[in-house]
Simulated assay, not measured.
Amino acid sequence: MSDADMMQLYSKRILALAADIPHLGRIADPQGSAKKRSPHCGSTVTAHVRIEDGHVAAFGQEVRACALGQASAAVLGTHVMGATRAEIARGEAQLLAMLKETGPVPDAPWDGLEVLIPARDYPNRHASILLSWQAVLAAIDAAETQPESRAAGN
């Protein structure tokens, strides 16, 4: 990878997002937690959630990833509160299509992911970019299997 390619890949906007990831850390009494790891680069993301009425009511994330993975976690963290599992899954699917199939930028509120378009050409970075999405979806799944979550209609 040339220096110019590296500079484009790690643009100022990506670095700004990576420096300001919302909802870092654990939350008190999560209903569900999940940790995902990229075997390619060793990046990890752990997500913690509480769900109310089918929507994310509390969210925390522990992100140990490259700037691209951190930028993706930042966009997710900015808009995850109040989102449903289906909305997050749709954003993840659109992000995957954007990266691997030259698909369009994900719909709002995930449209901030356009900053990651240069990563299309670097498939070894895709796993890190997707980690936060996979972790939050797995955390929601874990929350939905909790007896008190089902009893509350979540």
Results as ranks from 00 to 15, higher is better:
Ala57Lys: 10
Thr46Glu: 01
Gln8His: 09
Gly54Asp: 11
Val75Pro: 02
Tyr10Pro: 12
Cys66Ser: 07
Ala83Leu: 08
Val136Ile: 08
Val75Gly: 07
Ser128Ile: 06
Leu24Met: 14
Asn154Met: 12
Ile21Arg: 08
Asp111Asn: 09
Glu101Ala: 10
Leu96His: 15
His55Asp: 11
Ala97Arg: 09
Glu62Cys: 09
Val45Tyr: 05
Thr84Ala: 13
Leu17Thr: 04
Val56Met: 09
Ile140Val: 10
Ala57Asp: 11
Pro147Ala: 13
Lys36Ala: 10
Val105His: 13
Leu95Thr: 07
Leu137Ser: 02
Arg125Lys: 13
Ile117Lys: 15
Ala108Gly: 00
Ser43Met: 03
Gly91Tyr: 05
Lys100Phe: 00
Ala119Ser: 13
Asp107Pro: 06
His48Met: 07
Arg50Leu: 03
Ala152Met: 07
Tyr10Gln: 11
Leu113Ile: 04
Asp5Pro: 06
Glu144Ser: 09
Asp29Thr: 00
Glu92Gly: 10
Tyr10Ser: 10
Val56Lys: 11
Val80Trp: 00
Ala16Val: 08
Ala58Lys: 12
Gly91Cys: 06
Ala74Asp: 00
Arg13Thr: 13
Gln8Pro: 04
Thr84Cys: 12
Gln146Pro: 09
Ser33Thr: 15
Pro123Ile: 08
Leu96Asn: 13
Ala58Leu: 11
Leu15Asp: 11
His55Met: 14
Gly42Glu: 03
Glu144Leu: 12
Glu92Trp: 09
Arg13Asp: 14
Thr102Arg: 13
Gln146Tyr: 10
Asp5Gln: 13
Ser11Ile: 13
Asp141Ala: 13
Tyr122Cys: 13
Ala71Pro: 03
Pro109Phe: 02
Glu101Arg: 03
Ser2Ile: 07
Pro147Ser: 08
Trp133Asn: 01
Val115Gln: 05
Gly32Cys: 07
Leu68His: 04
Ala16Met: 11
Val80His: 01
Ala86Glu: 13
Val75Glu: 03
Ser132Ile: 02
Ala71Lys: 04
Ala89Ile: 08
Ala139Thr: 02
Leu76Gln: 05
Arg13Gly: 08
Leu137Glu: 10
Asp53Arg: 15
Arg90Met: 08
Lys36Asp: 08
Ala89Arg: 00
